[in-house]
């Protein structure tokens, strides 16, 4: 160690160090790099990218169901890349993607608190609202990447394994041209993103409230589980429409021959409503929270 050969402190009449500007703190690029090199980020993306190939292998090895006339989504998975991608999305949307989104959004603030790095970021100083905003944008970005990368990889894997065929609609066996379905497929992925927004917002609120990253992730996944259980209680009647997970499978309607978007619109509405309020609470809480970690 040696004393820094530094210039003497000049007269600073500003209220802040030269070059400092609140609006330039924690650039998105920096936060992306900070998160990207984490093992759990890498592992999650590796899993999401590998899953379609695992499914492809599973379908190759499984007893041939090609001859059957069954028109279930799972039996039609091998009908072509688009069918396979729809199948992969349907099996992963209810849990795997929930966990992925909860991980990216629940871990983001809580892990900084856990590492004690949060206090140095805040003392840098990064204004609290800005810290949350940047972290939320990056976490949602990673979540969006997770939700997008799985069906796209499934599309690739399915196309290589089963060919680029028109989509066969479950239930009726009708054929819709691949070129017609592709834009709808983008819509489906977009809807899957929006429907995971509630999970993201809940995980984010918990992330702000606790120092335990696993607590935040688990709490958000727990919310989904409780909501799914309540959804099965038919006695609740139309109350269930307002459960955050009720419309999560509405994207199937977009792939039917007569697409019906009303369920998806309701789903977007519910999802946005919950998310906006949960995120608002996250900001409110973090603003005046005593950071003691």
């Amino acid at each position: 160690m040696s004393a820094p050969a530094s210039p003497a402190a000049g007269e600073n009449t500003l209220g802040y160090a030269p070059g400092y500007s609140p609006g330039r703190t924690l650039p998105l690029r920096v936060e992306i790099v900070r998160q990207f090199r984490r093992r759990r980020t890498m592992a999650m993306f590796a899993l999401l990218l590998a899953l379609p190939w695992v499914l492809v292998v599973a379908f190759q090895f499984g007893p041939g169901s090609n001859g059957g006339n069954s028109l279930r989504l799972s039996d039609l998975a091998t009908a072509g890349g688009l069918n396979f991608a729809a199948f992969a999305l349907s099996v992963s949307a209810s849990f795997l993607l929930v966990v992925a989104v909860a991980l990216f959004c629940g871990d983001t603030v809580a892990s900084e608190a856990n590492w004690s790095s949060l206090r140095y970021l805040l003392a840098a100083p990064i204004p609290r609202d800005r810290l949350l905003r940047q972290k939320l944008i990056v976490a949602l970005g990673y979540s969006a990447a997770a939700v997008t990368v799985l069906p796209l990889m499934a599309l690739l894997a399915g196309t290589l394994a089963f060919g680029w065929n028109d989509i066969r609609v479950p239930g009726t066996g009708e054929i819709i041209a691949a070129s017609d379905v592709l834009p709808k497929f983008a819509l489906v992925i977009g809807y899957a993103l929006v429907s995971q927004l509630v999970v993201a917002a809940m995980a984010f609120l918990l992330s702000v409230s606790t120092d335990s990253p696993l607590g935040a992730v688990g709490g958000a996944v727990g919310l989904v589980i409780v909501s799914s259980i309540l959804q099965a209680v038919e006695a609740l009647g139309s109350f269930r429409e307002f459960l955050p997970t009720f419309w999560n499978t509405a994207w199937l309607d977009a792939l039917s021959p007569q697409p019906d978007y009303s369920g998806m619109i309701k789903g977007v509405s519910i999802s946005v409503t919950y998310s906006v309020i949960l995120i608002a609470f996250a900001f409110r809480r973090f603003r005046r929270k005593d950071v003691v970690s």
């Binding site: 609140p22 840098a124 990064i126 800005r130 603003r287």
Partner: peptide, 13 residues
């Protein structure tokens, strides 16, 4: 919290 003057403070706590 987040006062710009904190940029003139270096800390290890």
């Amino acid at each position: 919290p987040g006062a710009p003057v904190l940029s003139r403070l270096g800390s290890f706590v």
